[in-house]
Design a protein around this nucleic acid. Structure first.
Lengths: 116, 116
DNA sequence: GGATATAGGGGCAAAATTTTCACTATGACA
DNA sequence: TGTCATAGTGAAAATTTTGCCCCTATATCC
């Protein structure tokens, strides 16, 4: 982990929200967990473009922020499951809107800028 | 500008949404413009922690994505105003939720992790 | 003349985030 | 034995985002 040099902007609500779900895959993770995908390996299979590493990191951050809860089963091979906490569930309206808004834009064929 | 090397994930709606409002200040900008702050200099004063440069860049991207509309007045000194398009307004529910969710979390004193 | 405000661009560097790859450890399976 | 799946970490590199500083041009005001 590295030191943050620039202060987070926690003055406005949006800043706070971004601090918590701002990661590239965090909204997807919340979404997937809500849909019943609980194990890390399954989450990784769901998002093949995400590196295993980031998923791991972002899951950890979500847990540290109290958005998800981690259950470790003392088995071998390892088994872990993640669940939304109350705080996590309170994020669902936002995540759902993001999901449907994006689908909508896709469906309507509104142009999304390509990579340059 | 630089070449993007990593493909954007536009497979899921969330990916698309993040592509458009994923910038650090974009939700804030949308919010501010909606609240009647239209000129760049005012927007900059509203978010003192953001550098002029980034605001400029993100406004440009929002415009390229069709979220906001730019009006240039042929005056001196220059005058410019930004307005939400229909697409931009369709984002308001998301932005509003982000705003209120964050405020709520702040008010309830739920711990937000500090800089490390 | 000189300072200020306006909107924005360029170059460059710093910071932040993400990717890649190697590695731990163990039970099950062929 | 060798391989696979499991969950996760560490170091280092690549990529993306942001910040800083200087520059243009002009009208207004002191």
């Amino acid at each position: 982990m590295y030191e943050k040099k620039n202060p987070k902007d926690l003055s406005c609500g949006i800043g706070v929200t971004l601090e918590i779900i701002g990661g590239k895959w965090k909204p997807c993770l919340i979404n997937s967990i809500h849909k019943g995908i609980h194990r890390p390996s399954e989450l990784a299979r769901q998002n093949p473009t995400a590196s295993k590493r980031v998923l791991s990191l972002q899951l950890k951050e979500l847990e540290e922020h109290g958005v998800i809860r981690k259950v470790i089963y003392p088995v071998l091979p390892p088994k872990v499951e993640y669940f939304l906490t109350g705080l996590g569930e309170s994020l669902l309206p936002i995540v759902d809107l993001m999901e449907t808004w994006g689908e909508d834009v896709l469906a309507k064929g509104v142009v999304v800028k390509k990579n340059r």
